[in-house]
């Protein structure tokens, strides 16, 4: 005689929920984060409801089956909302695995007579709940990766500010390695800055670039040429001795660009070409 384990679980839904909530409360450390016990109860009840209504003997072995989708979606959104509330992945995983304990407890109470069936059911249920746990963890990792890639985008944006140092002169300090993606951002920001301010000189300061290889030099040349196409002049400043050494050793030709050692001399050059003069004011001495 084979008893339907799913039927047993469905009939004992209330008991499962009770057990689960009890289990959660014994794990005191992670109940603090929840605003109210009611909220936790409502969430758990919804989870148990969804689990028991979707689970059947066909899909228990096949986690990718389409009728499990609502359950998987629910687990994902649950994980995300818990992660936002500040739960650690361990807490969320424990939350899911305590459900396993209560499911198994109910099963062992109900089919205590047939040991081999109890064994089979235990394996099935535990494998299924493990899968839910993995799903939750995967969601957590994916969410984290999204945050990381978003942050690196923001960092690229943040680390390439366009500064208007004078009427008609823009400066852009570059901090960090210049790769293709970064160059694209630098170029776009610089050109947009030129259009917005109508500046005719742009200074690209590379004193914060750790190393210049042929690829980085290529990117610099591209930026300078693009600036020239827009009708502005681009000065590269902040060439450190090491950079000058590597550039010459690599045989990169930077002769077509205006290069200066410091931002100061670049600025002087810019003032010069705009026919501006910086003077010290001679104040009359009070006798």
């Amino acid at each position: 005689m084979a008893t339907d384990i799913f039927e047993i679980l469905r009939l004992n839904k209330q008991q499962i929920l009770q057990l689960w909530l009890q289990n959660q409360q014994t794990d005191t450390e992670f109940s603090d984060n929840f605003n109210t016990a009611d909220e936790l109860r409502a969430q758990s009840a919804e989870f148990v409801d969804l689990l028991l209504s979707t689970l059947n003997e066909n899909n228990i072995h096949d986690f990718s089956s389409p009728d499990l989708e609502p359950l998987i979606d629910y687990v994902s959104s649950l994980t995300i909302s818990r992660a936002r509330q500040g739960f650690s992945p361990r807490e969320t995983a424990t939350y899911i695995f305590t459900l396993k304990d209560s499911l198994l407890k109910v099963l062992s109470d109900q089919i205590s007579g047939d040991l081999s069936q109890l064994y089979q059911a235990t394996i099935q249920i535990s494998r299924f709940v493990d899968n839910i746990g993995i799903q939750s963890f995967e969601t957590f990792i994916t969410g984290r990766e999204e945050v990381i890639s978003q942050q690196s985008d923001e960092m690229a944006e943040l680390s390439t500010p366009v500064i208007r140092v004078w009427n008609g002169i823009l400066a852009m300090p570059i901090i960090g390695t210049l790769d293709s993606a970064r160059t694209q951002v630098v170029m776009e920001n610089l050109l947009q800055g030129i259009v917005d301010t109508g500046s005719s000189i742009a200074i690209l300061d590379i004193s914060g670039v750790p190393a210049v290889d042929s690829l980085v030099a290529q990117h610099l040349i591209k930026t300078v040429n693009a600036t020239r196409l827009m009708g502005a002049e681009c000065i590269i400043s902040g060439i450190r001795p090491e950079i000058a050494q590597t550039v010459v050793h690599l045989g990169i030709d930077l002769s077509q660009m205006i290069t200066k050692a410091t931002l100061e001399s670049a600025l002087k050059f810019a003032f010069n070409s705009l026919q501006l003069e910086v003077r010290r004011i001679q104040k009359d001495k009070v006798i």
């Binding site: 170029m187 776009e188 050109l191 947009q192 030129i194 259009v195 693009a226 196409l229 827009m230 009708g231």
Partner: peptide
């Protein structure tokens, strides 16, 4: 040549 758009300049360079 005057008033080249940034996108156009980047395209030509690329």
């Amino acid at each position: 040549v005057v008033g080249m758009q940034p996108a156009v300049a980047i395209t030509l360079i690329e």
